[in-house]
Simulated assay, not measured.
Amino acid sequence: MAKRVDVFYGGRLYSVGGRDIDDIRAEIGDALVRGHGWLTVNDGEGVAQSTELLITPGVDITLAALPGDAA
């Protein structure tokens, strides 16, 4: 599992911790099948603030997994 997944949306950087990138991809795919949906992400550095991103067709979103520590 990644340490976190960076989410680039609307020209801004957000992050998601504690989730696998494949799980996030599936959630985005499901939202697009329904026509729209919300993705919960963290905004800010240090103390993260929970934020909802509206996922709709035609909105650019990029995911980048940051590897965690090797166990």
Results as ranks from 00 to 15, higher is better:
S15Y: 13
G58N: 06
H36K: 14
V59S: 13
G10F: 00
V33W: 00
V47W: 07
A70Y: 11
L39D: 10
D6R: 09
T40S: 15
G68L: 07
R4T: 06
L66I: 15
E45W: 06
G58A: 01
L63D: 06
E27W: 00
D60C: 04
L39A: 09
G18A: 08
V41T: 07
S50P: 10
A64C: 12
G29A: 11
L54H: 08
A71R: 12
R19W: 01
G46K: 11
R34S: 08
G35N: 05
G17N: 02
G44P: 04
V16Q: 07
A65R: 10
G35A: 08
S15Q: 09
S15F: 12
G10R: 06
R34P: 00
Y14D: 05
R25C: 11
L66T: 12
D69H: 09
G46A: 07
P57M: 06
L63K: 09
V59C: 07
S50F: 07
G44N: 05
L54D: 05
T56Q: 15
Y9A: 03
Q49V: 14
R4C: 12
D6H: 03
L53T: 01
G10K: 06
Q49N: 08
A2Y: 05
L53W: 01
L53R: 04
L66D: 06
W38S: 13
L63Y: 05
R4I: 04
G29T: 05
L39F: 10
A26T: 07
D20I: 05
G46I: 08
T51S: 07
L63I: 09
L53Y: 02
A48D: 10
N42Q: 13
G18K: 11
I24E: 04
P67T: 12
T62Y: 00
I55H: 04
S15W: 11
R25S: 11
N42D: 14
R19Q: 15
G44Y: 03
G44M: 03
D30K: 12
L32I: 07
A2M: 02
G17P: 00
L54F: 05
S15P: 00
L54A: 10
A71Y: 06
Y14H: 08
L63A: 06
R19M: 11
A64N: 13
R12M: 13
W38Y: 13
T56R: 15
V41P: 03
L53H: 01
K3L: 12
D30Q: 09
D30N: 05
I24Y: 03
Q49E: 14
Y14I: 05
S50D: 09
G58F: 04
K3C: 01
V16I: 15
A31T: 03
R4W: 11
V41D: 02
M1G: 03
G17V: 07
A64M: 14
D20M: 05
G44C: 04
I28G: 04
D43F: 11
D23T: 13
K3F: 08
T51R: 15
I24F: 03
G18S: 08
L66M: 10
G17F: 05
D20A: 12
A31Y: 03
S15C: 09
A71D: 11
A2H: 04
G46T: 09
A31K: 02
L53Q: 06
N42V: 07
D20P: 03
L54K: 10
E27S: 13
D23Q: 12
R34A: 13
R12Q: 15
L13D: 10
R4G: 01
R12F: 10
